[in-house]
Design a protein around this nucleic acid. Structure first.
Lengths: 198, 198
DNA sequence: GTCTATACACTGATAGAC
DNA sequence: GTCTATCAGTGTATAGAC
C-alpha cells in the first residue's frame, strides 16, 4: 500500500481509481483532467508517471512479464521449447489467479475498448519477443524460438479465455488441454496438393 | 488510377503520397495539415476519408482479408483446419508477392513506428477473428477454430518474415517449412512433471 | 467538398516543496 | 535531488454551417 497515489506498481490507488473511472464513464469519455482530479494530483503530474491514458491499465503487466522470462531462464536443461513454456505459463497463471478480483474489471474495460485492446496486443507482442530471446538463451534453435514463443502464447491466451469462461477447471488443466489440441491440429502436416486453383 | 485523390482502395494516389511523407519526416513528425496539403485537399477532408492518421496505411489490407476469408469459405470439404489455412495463406501470399514494390516501403514505416505497429497488430487480431468464424462455418470444432486461426496466423507471419529476409526461396516454401517446424514443436506434448517449484 | 470553431491528449519550461 | 504545480502551447480529431 504505497503512500503516494501514483507510485508505480501493479495495484496502486491511482491505478485502481482510474479503472473505476473507465468503467463508469467509458474510456473515451474519461478526460485526463478527471483522472488527475480523482487521484488528487495535477493533470501534468499524471503524465509524468504514465506516457498516456492507456498505460495506466498495463502497469501491473511488468510482474507477469518478469515471471515468464525468469521462469524460462531458470528452466531445467534438456527440456523442449513447449515444455519450457508450459512451466512458465503455469507460473504466470498463478499470478493471474491470485489477483483475479483486480484483474477482472481491468480485463472487462479492455475488452470493450478498442484503443485499450490495441495496447494490450502491443504488450503481448513485446512479451513474445522477450520470450523468444529467453528461449534462444536456453539454446533453442533461432528459427524455432520465435515460432514457439508466438504459437505458445496463442495457446496461453486461448487457455486463459477458456478458464475465464469455465472456471470449474483449473487454468493448468485448460493449458494442458490446449497444448494437446495444438498437437492434434499440427499432427497432420498440411499438404498443398488439394488447394483449389493452384 | 482513381480520379479523386482520396477515393478508397489499396494503392490510391493519396495513400502512397502519405506513405512518402511518413518515410521522409517520420510518422510522428508528420502533421495532418501536411498530409492534406500534399494531397491537395483540406485537412477536414482527410478525416472524412480516414478515421485517423494511421488508417491510411491499412487501406489495402481489405483485399488480403477478403482473399483469406474467401479462400477458407471455398475450400474443399474434408480438409483439416491447417490444410484449409495453408491454401488460404498461399492465396494471400500471391497478393503480397504481386504488390511487393508497394508493400515494402509500407512495411518499413510500420516497422519503425510503434503507433503503426499497434494498429497492425489490431488488424491482425481482427483478421484472425474473421478466420475463426470462417473455419467454424467449415465445420471446424468451435474450440479448435480459434486456436487454429491464431497459431496458423503465427505461422503465416513467421513465414512472411523469413521470406523477406531470404527471398531466394518462395513464400510457399517458407510456409511449408514453418508448418513443419510447428509439427516438430508440438509433437512432444509438454509434460508438467519437470517444472521447478510446483 | 470547404471553413470556422472547439475539445482534449499530450509536451516543454520553469519554479516551488520536501 | 526528487517530486510536484502552473502556464502556455502543439497537434489530432470532431462538429456545425455553408
Amino acid at each position: 500500500m504505497p503512500t503516494k497515489p501514483w507510485s508505480r506498481g501493479p495495484w496502486t490507488v491511482g491505478a485502481s481509481r482510474t479503472t473505476e473511472l473507465y468503467r463508469e464513464r467509458g474510456f473515451d469519455q474519461t478526460t485526463t483532467a478527471e483522472i488527475a482530479a480523482r487521484a488528487g494530483v495535477n493533470e501534468r503530474t499524471f503524465f509524468r508517471h504514465f506516457p498516456d491514458k492507456r498505460e495506466v491499465l498495463f502497469d501491473g503487466q511488468a510482474a507477469v512479464r518478469a515471471a515468464l522470462v525468469e521462469a524460462v531462464a531458470e528452466s531445467p536443461d534438456g527440456l523442449r521449447p513447449f515444455e519450457i513454456l508450459l512451466c512458465a505459463f503455469r507460473k504466470a497463471g498463478r499470478i493471474l489467479e491470485e489477483n483475479r478480483p483486480f484483474s477482472e474489471p481491468r480485463l472487462e474495460v479492455i475488452a470493450v475498448t478498442p484503443a485499450l485492446r490495441e495496447r494490450e496486443l502491443a504488450k503481448a507482442a513485446s512479451l513474445t519477443e522477450a520470450l523468444t530471446q529467453a528461449l534462444r538463451q536456453r539454446d533453442v534453435d533461432d528459427r524455432l524460438a520465435g515460432l514457439a514463443a508466438q504459437t505458445g502464447w496463442a495457446v496461453f491466451h486461448q487457455a486463459v479465455q477458456a478458464w475465464i469462461d469455465d472456471p470449474s477447471h483449473s487454468l493448468d488443466a485448460h493449458l494442458s488441454r490446449t497444448f494437446e489440441d495444438l498437437r492434434t491440429l499440427s499432427a497432420a502436416v498440411p499438404s498443398t496438393k488439394a488447394c483449389p486453383g493452384s
